Simulated assay, not measured.
Amino acid sequence: MSSMLAASLAASPVAAQVYGDGVGMWHGTWGWGHMVVGGLMMLLFWAAVIALIVLIVRWLSGSAREQRPPDRSALEILEERFARGEIEREEFEEKRRLLAGQAGAQKGR
């Protein structure tokens, strides 16, 4: 026990020489700034790791755009609305003629 005490006391002058002016490892010019910056860096690191994992999972599973059903034409939507009874026959016929006229006009361009 006394040899451990002697060894620790013998090391004290060495520590005093290394940190000569008393500005030791914890009392530098940053003060507690090392801990704040270190904490922020740790948060940024873990946020980057989590974001990377999410991106990899989304990439491996396929994007949401690929899983979306193909776009339907206006005529298909109109036919579905008529089939569900949301619009009357007259309105359906009128809108179908209108859509057919637009499709013909676009083909003529």
Rank of each mutant, 00 (worst) to 15 (best):
V14P: 00
S8V: 14
A105K: 01
A100Y: 02
G62S: 06
V49M: 07
A103Q: 06
S8Q: 09
P70N: 12
P13S: 08
M35E: 04
R96S: 05
R81A: 15
A15K: 05
W59T: 06
H27N: 14
L9K: 03
A100R: 05
A16T: 07
L75H: 11
P69R: 06
G22P: 01
M42Q: 01
G22D: 09
L52M: 07
M25V: 14
E79K: 09
A103E: 06
E94L: 06
A11I: 08
R65P: 00
I77H: 04
H34W: 04
G108N: 09
I56D: 12
A7C: 03
W26C: 11
P70G: 11
G108D: 09
A100W: 01
A100I: 05
Q67N: 09
V49S: 04
I53C: 11
P13D: 07
P69W: 01
M42K: 00
F45I: 07
V36K: 00
G108Q: 07
V57N: 06
R84P: 02
L99I: 12
G104D: 11
G38L: 00
M25H: 11
V23R: 11
G104R: 14
G108L: 09
E86I: 05
R58W: 08
E86T: 02
F82S: 13
A74Q: 15
R97P: 01
A51M: 10
K95V: 13
A51I: 07
L60F: 07
M41I: 07
W26T: 14
A105V: 03
I50E: 06
H34Y: 06
A6F: 13
S12I: 14
G38K: 00
S63G: 15
A103R: 09
P70F: 08
I77V: 13
A10R: 02
A48D: 04
L44P: 00
I56R: 09
I87W: 02
A47P: 00
